[in-house]
Amino acid sequence: MNPDDWTPREMRHGFVSLLSGSGMPLENISRLVGHGTTIVTETVYRKQLRPALLDGAQAMDDLFLAQEP
């Protein structure tokens, strides 16, 4: 995706997801984005990127290691 095409909504979701993935407490993230509670931050904005990336990396390792002679 071209960064010039990113919408404010996509950037907000990315911001929350990256902070969450870095280990910042959800309460702090909620305050940064102006939410009164963590419910909306957690259920709407936060996407768990790290588990998906790690699962994908492990699957690729498994595929390539299985191909070694």
Rank of each mutant, 00 (worst) to 15 (best):
L53K: 04
I39A: 14
N2D: 14
E10P: 04
D62L: 02
G23A: 05
S17H: 05
L49H: 07
L63M: 05
K47E: 05
F15T: 13
L63I: 02
M60K: 08
P8C: 02
P8N: 02
D62T: 03
R50F: 01
Q48P: 13
P3A: 03
M24N: 08
H35S: 00
V33A: 14
V33D: 15
Y45Q: 10
V16N: 01
G23C: 06
G34D: 00
M11P: 04
R46K: 15
S30Q: 05
S30M: 06
L18I: 12
T38K: 10
T37A: 15
A59R: 13
M11H: 10
L19M: 09
R50I: 03
I29R: 04
S20K: 12
H13P: 08
L32V: 08
E42S: 14
G23I: 08
A57S: 11
G56A: 09
Q67F: 00
L19D: 04
W6T: 03
V33W: 15
R46M: 12
R31Y: 07
S30V: 03
R9M: 09
G34W: 02
T38C: 12
E27L: 04
T37K: 14
N2A: 09
N28P: 01
S30E: 04
T43I: 13
H35V: 02
N2Q: 06
P8L: 00
V16L: 03
E42F: 10
H35N: 02
T37M: 11
M60G: 01
L26G: 01
G14M: 11
R12T: 09
A59Q: 12
S20T: 10
S17K: 05
A59V: 07
H35M: 00
M1F: 10
H35L: 00
M11A: 09
N28R: 05
G34F: 00
Q58T: 11
L65I: 11
A57G: 09
G34A: 00
S20H: 14
D61S: 11
E68W: 00
A59Y: 05
W6L: 06
T37Q: 14
G21F: 04
E27P: 02
D62Q: 01
L19T: 03
T7I: 06
T38I: 12
L26N: 03
S22H: 14
K47V: 05
T38G: 07
P69M: 01
S22C: 13
A52F: 05
H35Y: 02
E10L: 06
M1I: 09
L53P: 01
T43D: 13
P25K: 07
S20C: 11
D61I: 06
L63H: 00
D61A: 08
N2T: 07
E10N: 05
V40I: 12
S30G: 10
W6A: 04
M24S: 09
E68H: 00
D5W: 14
H35P: 02
Q58F: 03
